[in-house]
Amino acid sequence: MAIRLSRIGGSAATAASRVRAGSPSRATLRPQNATGGDAAVVPLSRFRPGEHGRIAYVETSEPRRLQKLLALGVLPGKELYLRQAFPGRVFQVGHSQFAIDDDLARAIFVRREA
């Protein structure tokens, strides 16, 4: 298995993202090509175990939450695989597994992939 990291060799500048306009109180990390009405993008809290996807953006009204997810390396563009949903959400990003609660799972928006 090859290492799959979304931005090998890329600098921060290629990972274009912007704070969502009109809602300054919410901190959003969203790549420019992700559109709001994309039906394939759902919060991780609605993912089912066994589903794969790619993180589209992270959105939360609490900067500290964002900070926690950044610290885990949960960043837009990364591949994600949900292993289990109860009693907490267990997912895999890169070679690491993480457990988070429902509140944090609602902040991560993932584009479903087959």
Partner: peptide, 11 residues
């Protein structure tokens, strides 16, 4: 354009 903490994390 984005929180600096994010820029730093990406780099």
């Amino acid at each position: 354009p984005e929180p600096l903490s994010y820029t730093v994390a990406l780099s």
